[in-house]
């Protein structure tokens, strides 16, 4: 279910879409309304992904449990703790490049990019506990 809200921040108007997904996790999606917003529509509120594909697309916030539609999600293969995030939003990666390090099962496991592309979202920060299947980053 997608619900739309209009929110004004410092005179800029944002259309916010709130989607309810399974397991009670909510996915936020923030995007400035191009038409309604005053001319130099800087987006101060949320970190809109710089390199996210097509701004019209449902862009995910910097840290969340979702990835933009079409982006390939890199998810945790097992439960553990994020030790290090090697990439930033917008980083260009090649298949096999390390994107983050997951400490799990007595090991520091390198999580690698499954394909060439640009990091669309970084969904975790160092120190975060993740479950198997949680999205770590997404690559567009």
């Amino acid at each position: 279910m997608m619900k739309k809200f209009l929110i004004s921040v410092n005179g800029n108007q944002y259309e916010v879409e709130v989607e309810e997904v399974g397991n009670g996790q909510s996915v936020q999606s923030v995007q400035p309304i191009r038409v309604a917003a005053p001319a130099p529509a800087a987006a101060p509120a949320a970190k809109a992904p710089a390199a996210a594909p097509a701004p019209e697309a449902k862009a995910a916030p910097a840290v969340s449990k979702s990835a933009p539609a079409g982006a390939e999600k890199v998810s945790a293969p097992m439960p553990g703790t994020i030790l290090k995030v090697v990439v930033d939003q917008g980083s260009v990666v090649k298949r096999g490049d390390v994107v983050c390090i997951l400490e799990a099962m007595k090991m520091e496991n390198e999580i690698v990019a499954p394909k060439d592309g640009t990091i669309a979202t970084v969904n975790v920060q160092p120190g975060a506990s993740v479950n198997a299947g949680d999205i770590l980053v997404s690559i567009a």
Binding site: P77, M78, A104, M105, K106, M107, N109, E110
Partner: peptide
Amino acid sequence: QPNVKAGC
């Protein structure tokens, strides 16, 4: 295989 899922 330690490279995948820490070999668990």
